[in-house]
Amino acid sequence: MVRSRAERMADWAVYAAMLVLALAFLLPVLWLASLSVRTQAEVFMGAARFIPEAPTLDNFARVLRDGGFQSYIWNTVKLASLGAAGAVALAAPAAYALSRMAFRGKGALMLGILSVQMVSGLVVLIPLYRFMDRLGLLESHFGTTLLYIAAGIPVTIWLLKVSFDAVPRSLDDAAAIDGLSRVESFALITLPLALPGLISAFILNLILNWSQFLIPFIMLSADDKWPISVAIFRFAGSTSAATTQLLAAACLLAILPALAIFVLLQRYILAALTAGAVKE
């Protein structure tokens, strides 16, 4: 395709705008990176030493050796992956029903499910806390995981419905003729064929859960149960600038797994989010 001069100019304008946007998001991360490789002395120099004179990896080494940090990361892995698996497992049958069955009020139900996603966690924080308290589920990873699952289900239902929609209906018919029940047809035909969608939904949940803060913050008060997000917040609020460089290193390390997953698997995530957008 031949592009006109005006179009190329427009392209450059878009790139420039995107660069500004990217900087707005990247600067805090770069600042974090800068702090994480400084010595304690250089932390006090502030922005004047954006690139430190004596960069050190010592902070990372100290954080990684710290038993507390290891426990926070492990808690995060556990909560995030169990929450993601639970959300996918529970959303799948619902998404299948929405994909395959016709019933009155289906459109309204789907919008209702989506609208749950629009409610900010902050709005329901206090009732949620009291609710979980009554159930005796506070201070436990089990209760926390249940909330992670609940938070992930709405968007997962939508994602999976799109994946199931992409599996041809005639395969359901063929399976019915071959004598399979609905459940068997779901398990043996639809699920395996929607596997890429299931995986993307799982990964997306994993990333969202990795950065989850509000739920564990209200649910867990014991240090040994915290995921990394809560731990960092608590330390940032309680310690002096003497440990800023350590905190920065911990933050950076905490971001890395989510970032790595995203970079490695972004193709799948993007595929899941845009599936069904165009007819192939």
Binding site: P168, S170, D173, A174, A176, I177, G179, L180, S181
Partner: peptide, 13 residues
Amino acid sequence: SPGERNVAMVFQN
């Protein structure tokens, strides 16, 4: 159900 009817079907696709 279709499975109980002992029919077999060849589909267009």
